[in-house]
Design a binder for these strands. Structure first.
Lengths: 132, 132
DNA sequence: CTGCATGCAAACCGTTTGCATCCCC
DNA sequence: GGGGATGCAAACGGTTTGCATGCAG
């Protein structure tokens, strides 16, 4: 596997602490409390590297920023269309989807992901779109 | 609805021509052959506007760039993990997914999308990852 | 000592925006 | 003539990268 440097270890620990699926810069802020001199680049490099090595999951979800997940088992997500927050959806993964899809494409299918969109509890409480 | 300017019309026509789901700049290149002086900003503005008005679909898929689709009916997609190309997957949309998901979240669910990942026919033919 | 990892800052890429001009009603 | 739409270019936000330094084997 890969060497577990202090930075990597702390990034991993901080990621595992939360059930939300933080973006790189959210994680950067979390990690910086323990390693004030760490650089954003290091966070990106290590997240990428750990994702390649299957230690974490890089979520391929909609929205502008990539998000990361310490849980590497296959599962689905829901994304808040107002604030971008992402949470797990705890329903069984439907592997048979891949079989059906295989019949309708020439792609070599590697996997699938279901992403729900909705309004998260926090945003439901708030008035409306952008402000206040 | 919205005013159908020359630019909008041509963007729409070019988008409808292809079954792939082009990015804004791919579309920009296509449109530029007919409207050489059009600006990238105009393409972005109009895609956004037409998406808001339900004339086209803005795909919330993984990958770095947004992609657009002239087909506005709900359907699933597959994305090539090598080249990023996106194609339709012609299997029935499973509305019951939303019901199951609703039981496991406090979000107010608005919709869902299934995205398969795989290797497209073109990339299967080519040697390996990046180059050549 | 040697090489990978880091911090830092600049570069990059996709997208958005401000502004002066243009065009159509 | 007036308001939205356009072309252009600059700004922006997220991510990547080059480079000199640091640290661990």
């Amino acid at each position: 596997m890969i060497r577990l440097t202090t930075q990597r270890q702390i990034i991993l620990e901080e990621l595992a602490k939360v059930k939300t699926h933080p973006t790189a810069s959210e994680l950067y802020d979390m990690v910086r409390k323990r390693l004030p001199r760490i650089g954003l680049g290091t966070v990106y490099r290590n997240l990428e590297l750990m994702a390649e090595n299957g230690m974490i999951l890089k979520l391929e979800v909609g929205g502008t920023q990539k998000r990361f997940d310490a849980t590497t088992e296959d599962h689905y997500h829901i994304r808040c269309s107002r604030c971008g927050r992402v949470d797990d959806i705890d329903i069984p993964v439907i592997d048979s989807l891949v079989e059906s899809a295989a019949k309708s494409t020439d792609y070599q299918i590697l996997g699938h992901h279901v992403e729900f969109t909705g309004i998260c509890p926090d945003c439901q409480k708030k008035p409306k779109p952008g402000l206040q």
